[in-house]
Write a protein that binds this DNA or RNA. Structure first.
Length: 353
DNA sequence: AATGGCTCCAACCGCCAAGAT
DNA sequence: GATCTTGGCGGTTGGAGCCAT
């Protein structure tokens, strides 16, 4: 049993001795009874009114994190875990904000779950839990069987690796992603995902690109994941699975260039904007053209394909001089049908250097 | 059975912003 | 405007309990 510690109250409390440490069932009962009958009102007055020798702040925390009747107890579901990861990618360590997307969960609970579980999973997967990007080679723990013995290979994975690349062996080695930035996040639609599923066994030819399609489990494409999960095709092994996203339409794309060489990675991300996460009243899908336009307006490097589907919404002149790799876009997206709305690359009539 | 290491999470700490005085 | 109070938040701690040896 934890020793009860008595201390002088903090500045938030009256100058009386307060108890610290774990709450007893009797204390819980007193607090519940008081708040149920009178509400908490001013927290600093709660301890006295409830007959507790606790600091008001401690009462507040106990109520919010543990005693509130609307709390949801028990293990986090897979859906909740996915939501946390998705929102954390956008908001970072803003636990209170993240918890708002999980009814009945507290910021403390989400934070603890992140630190004790999700963070380790991401690191084990070769992902930086802060940025959600690939860890650079020197940051990645040694990739041996022990590191991954607890990783469930049936979890959502979504990757395509071009093992038929004409590049040298060294060039095929894992390269770090560029530091994550919103500039690399462009939105695609559910159609792309469906098309990828449709084409997963087709004759895809990415001879010139080391293409990696990924979901949250980006590392799976880079750590030599068990070949039994790869669907053989004539040109490349393909590994597809449902998105980790919680929304059926929640598929987006990140098109990034590997740092230091010309290899290209195509990554699928939830298609929510930062604003959409902060206010769930907004629809999860955003107009990719508008988003691309925003990136251009900010002077960011636009190297992606999300613009394609809603070209009509774009102010084409503003793309002059932008770094847009049309060849890559064509190679990456034509087999997926993403150019169906465009017709041909001729329509992308701007200077792409 | 004893013990040491590890994990998880409830609770605390310190800081900050907003409102009251 | 300065100071105080309060609530909210993220980072951190430490102990209960589990597990391996």
């Amino acid at each position: 049993m934890k020793e009860i510690i008595w201390e002088m109250g903090h500045h938030c409390c009256s100058k009386q001795k307060v108890k610290r440490g774990l709450w007893s069932p009797e204390e819980d009962e007193k607090l519940i009874k008081h708040i149920t009958n009178h509400g908490h009102g001013c927290w600093s007055s709660v301890p006295k009114l409830a007959g507790l020798q606790r600091c008001g702040k401690s009462c507040r925390l106990r109520w919010i994190n543990y005693l509130r009747p609307d709390l949801r107890r028990g293990s986090f579901t897979e859906h909740e875990e996915r939501t946390i990861i998705d929102v954390h990618r956008i908001l970072g360590n803003r636990w209170a904000q993240i918890a708002k997307h999980l009814p009945g969960r507290t910021d403390n609970e989400v934070k603890n779950f992140w630190n004790s579980c999700i963070k380790k999973k991401l690191i084990a997967q070769g992902l930086d839990p802060n940025t959600h990007n690939l860890l650079s080679p020197h940051q990645i723990p040694i990739l041996n069987a022990n590191n991954y013995k607890n990783i469930d290979s049936t979890k959502p994975v979504f990757s395509i690796i071009n093992t038929s690349s004409t590049q040298t062996k060294d060039a095929k080695k894992v390269q770090p992603f560029r530091p994550h930035s919103d500039a690399n996040d462009l939105v695609m639609t559910h159609n792309l995902y469906e098309n990828l599923l449709t084409h997963q066994s087709s004759n895809l030819n990415y001879q010139d690109y080391n293409l990696v399609l990924k979901n949250d489990v980006r590392h799976q494409s880079t750590m030599g994941f068990s070949s039994q999960h790869l669907v053989e095709s004539t040109k490349m092994p393909i590994l597809l699975s449902p998105s980790s996203s919680s929304h059926p339409l929640d598929f987006g794309a990140v098109v990034q260039s590997w740092a230091g060489n010309s290899d290209i990675g195509v990554a699928f991300e939830p298609a929510r904007t930062r604003e959409a996460y902060q206010d769930m009243l907004q629809p999860p899908m955003v107009d990719q053209g508008v988003m691309a336009q925003e990136f251009v307006n900010k002077g960011l490097d636009l190297r992606g394909a999300g613009v394609v589907q809603s070209l009509n919404n774009l102010d084409m002149s503003s793309f002059d001089g932008c770094n847009i790799d049309l060849e890559f876009m064509e190679a990456a997206l034509t087999p997926c049908g993403m150019y169906s709305n465009v017709g041909s690359l001729d329509q992308l009539a701007w200077d792409c250097n």
